[in-house]
Design a binder for these strands. Structure first.
Length: 334
DNA sequence: GATCCACAGGAAGGGTTGGGGG
DNA sequence: CCCCCAACCCTTCCTGTGGATC
């Protein structure tokens, strides 16, 4: 039943994107100067998850690569590369592949110096989840690199600008902004239909089922494709030649869990304990949670450190903090 | 209404880590 | 081989806030 599983994978970038013409055009326009060897406009892509921000950024850069002879590009996920050092390291890595800069042996802004000295073809850097960057001043530094164009991706504009360095904020005030909204049900169905036609045997999934998946995904294409992928896999394993409604129903919680699971697996052991305690006991105040945590581990960290852990969990969208000061409680999302 | 208390989160400093140079 | 140094993590100390208590 499955012909090509790749097109259902989350990281797959389609050759043609659907329902994002306006956004693609705006981004292409912002990058136009690159065609003439100039620097492109700094551009923000804002919107909830699963609405195609990363996909459109990568797609547009790819288009540009086909149109322009010579550009360099690099994708940096700031969720994984959240420190100034790591982000700069990745950016330098995009330029010559190997970097012989190691922490400890080089003056602390050697990385930035090397990036600034860059004088090759135009360099397009996509900074995904840019709100996760600990030191936003790095954006200010990158802003001053002549050959470097930035595409910045984040969920919410307000949250991003709240803790931006003042210099950065004023510079980025003038940056272009492109907003992405949830997909409609019809758009999600069309996106899935396209992937189904490429990746599955004809007739494997009916439109009615795609509508059902779209409904469960609530405008999030990543969730929709996750459900579709799991449903197709389950049906294939069961030896069916098409997906039926009950398989879809079974795949919905799986897909949700899958997306969350990859995040949970990246937690440190201590963060994981906090996550599990919130899972087990539900909504809690910081005090009770800390007491349980202290019981649960051999070498408890201080309250201050646990507060840092919790704010990480909130940033990762695994935990919600509700209320202020004493009244604040923590619980898992969803 | 003054005081207390639990909590959030900033700032500063120390310890650990892990690479390169002497 | 040892030492140096920056990155990183954790702790300590601190200020600010708002609900609870008297």
């Amino acid at each position: 039943m499955i012909r090509d599983a790749r097109v259902l994978q989350p990281e797959f970038v389609p050759r043609e994107v659907q329902h994002r013409d306006a956004e693609v055009n705006q981004l292409t326009h912002a990058l136009d100067p690159i065609v003439d060897g100039e620097r492109g406009d700094t551009t923000f892509l804002f919107g909830p998850s699963g609405v195609g921000k990363t996909c459109i950024a990568q797609y547009t850069v790819e288009q540009l690569r086909e149109a322009v002879v010579d550009i360099e590009h690099q994708y940096v996920n700031c969720w994984q590369n959240y420190s100034r050092f790591r982000a700069l390291y990745r950016i330098l890595e995009g330029l010559d592949g190997t970097v012989d800069v190691h922490r400890g042996s080089t003056p602390h802004d050697e990385l930035l110096r090397r990036v600034r000295e860059y004088d090759g073809p135009p360099y397009v850097v996509v900074l995904d989840e840019v709100d996760q960057l600990q030191d936003s001043a790095v954006l200010y530094d990158l802003y001053r690199v002549p050959k470097l164009s930035m595409i910045l991706i984040a969920n919410r504009e307000e949250e991003l600008f709240v803790d931006l360095d003042d210099r950065v904020a004023s510079r980025l005030q003038s940056a272009r902004r492109i907003r992405f909204d949830h997909y409609t049900e019809a758009e999600l169905v069309a996106i899935m239909r396209d992937r189904v036609d490429w990746g599955l045997e004809p007739g494997a999934v009916s439109d009615a089922l795609l509508r059902r998946i779209a409904d469960a995904a609530a405008g999030d294409a990543r969730v929709a494709l996750g459900i579709l992928r799991n449903a197709a896999r389950d049906a294939a394993r069961a030896g069916h030649d098409s997906v039926d409604p009950s398989t879809v129903t079974g795949a919905i919680p799986d897909a949700r869990r899958e997306i969350r699971q990859t995040t949970v697996e990246n937690l440190t052991p201590h963060q994981r304990v906090l996550y599990d305690l919130l899972d087990e006991h539900g909504r809690q105040h910081a005090g009770e949670l800390y007491e349980r945590y202290r019981e649960a581990v051999d070498d408890p960290r201080t309250k201050r450190t646990v507060r840092n852990y919790l704010s990480k969990l909130v940033q990762y969208d695994l935990v919600v903090a509700e209320g202020e000061n004493r009244a604040r409680t923590y619980r898992l999302t969803g």
